[in-house]
Simulated scan of single mutants.
Amino acid sequence: MWVEIPVLVVVALVIALTVKTFFVQAFFIPSASMEPTLQKGDRVLVDKFTPWFGATPQRGDVVVFHDPGNWLTQADVPAPSGNGALRGLQSALSTVGLMPSANEKDLIKRVIAVGGDTVKCDSGAPVKVNSTPLDEPYIYPGSTPCDDDTVGEVTVPKGDLWVMGDHRNDSADSRFQRTHHKGDGFVPVKDVVGRAVVVAWPLGRWSTLPVPSTFDHVGLAAGTAPATAPALATAVTPGALGAVGVAAPLTLWRRRQRRHRGR
């Protein structure tokens, strides 16, 4: 028993670390910036597996990404709790995915445009991607697509993304960063952790996160090419290998659906 128990613990830690690193990771949603798609307190599963095979973020995907440059203030990041020993233990456990990280600096938004696209966001008008207006039934009821942060027309550089929260009037997204922080508002594809594919918790809100039909419009892709490289979200325990069994088939199904719609 004294030999087997330590071995089992080590094996469990290795499995947890492998799942978190290469397959799927769960994230906690602490803000309202993606309502109504994601509610405060939701846990979502993020696919980190398919990017290893060349999958890249597409228009309409909900993605988790590292802070690309001071999007988050110190007040947005949860402060570590406890004494030095407890903080060290929490840091070690969060590394292998067995505990939430105390200082995550990740965000979650919807991809609106990819590298090569032009985005136009004017007051009183819908968002336009490559001159095509977007019908956005997923945004928060009563929200205006662009009224609070207008940016005119911008072109997304290759290798970058333009992202927005579904709660447009409560989201410090690409528009906000460009108009208020004097940044460009772009998210490098290399900073993307993965694509959110499932709302896993609470059970009453279990659902997949498919790409809205809005982004099937043929005009969106005219003359553009997708990026070529792969609201504050807090990482939590991935669950177990069973999460991979959920995320991987769902991702493959989504890709087949996209190809079918394209044909």
Score class of each variant (00 low, 15 high):
140 Y>N: 06
141 P>M: 11
142 G>L: 04
142 G>I: 04
142 G>S: 05
143 S>F: 08
145 P>Q: 15
145 P>H: 09
145 P>A: 15
145 P>V: 10
146 C>I: 06
146 C>M: 08
146 C>P: 00
147 D>W: 12
148 D>P: 09
149 D>H: 14
149 D>K: 08
151 V>Q: 06
151 V>E: 06
151 V>P: 00
152 G>E: 09
152 G>A: 12
152 G>I: 08
154 V>D: 00
154 V>H: 02
154 V>A: 02
154 V>M: 05
154 V>L: 11
155 T>Q: 13
155 T>F: 03
155 T>R: 07
155 T>N: 04
156 V>A: 02
157 P>L: 01
157 P>I: 00
157 P>S: 02
158 K>V: 05
158 K>N: 13
158 K>F: 11
159 G>F: 05
159 G>D: 07
159 G>M: 07
160 D>S: 11
160 D>C: 04
161 L>H: 00
161 L>W: 00
162 W>D: 00
162 W>S: 03
163 V>A: 02
163 V>M: 07
164 M>H: 04
165 G>I: 04
166 D>H: 10
166 D>P: 06
167 H>D: 05
167 H>M: 07
171 S>H: 03
171 S>G: 08
171 S>N: 07
173 D>V: 06
173 D>H: 11
175 R>S: 10
175 R>Y: 06
175 R>V: 04
175 R>L: 07
176 F>E: 02
176 F>S: 04
176 F>D: 03
176 F>Y: 15
177 Q>P: 03
177 Q>S: 11
177 Q>D: 08
178 R>L: 06
178 R>K: 15
178 R>C: 02
178 R>W: 01
179 T>K: 15
179 T>M: 11
180 H>I: 08
180 H>Y: 10
181 H>T: 12
181 H>Y: 14
182 K>G: 15
183 G>H: 08
183 G>P: 01
184 D>N: 14
185 G>M: 00
185 G>T: 02
185 G>I: 00
186 F>I: 05
188 P>V: 09
189 V>E: 07
190 K>W: 12
190 K>Y: 14
191 D>S: 15
191 D>E: 15
192 V>C: 05
193 V>P: 00
193 V>H: 01
193 V>N: 01
194 G>Q: 05
194 G>W: 01
195 R>D: 02
195 R>W: 10
196 A>F: 12
196 A>S: 15
196 A>I: 13
197 V>I: 14
198 V>I: 13
198 V>E: 00
198 V>G: 00
199 V>G: 03
199 V>N: 04
199 V>Q: 03
199 V>S: 04
201 W>R: 05
202 P>D: 12
202 P>A: 11
202 P>V: 11
202 P>G: 12
202 P>C: 12
202 P>E: 12
204 G>D: 11
204 G>K: 10
205 R>L: 10
207 S>G: 15
208 T>V: 14
208 T>H: 11
208 T>C: 06
208 T>P: 02
208 T>E: 13
208 T>L: 14
209 L>V: 12
210 P>T: 05
210 P>G: 06
211 V>W: 08
212 P>I: 01
213 S>I: 08
213 S>G: 13
214 T>H: 13
214 T>A: 12
215 F>G: 00
215 F>S: 01
216 D>M: 09
217 H>R: 11
218 V>H: 14
218 V>E: 14
218 V>L: 11
218 V>T: 14
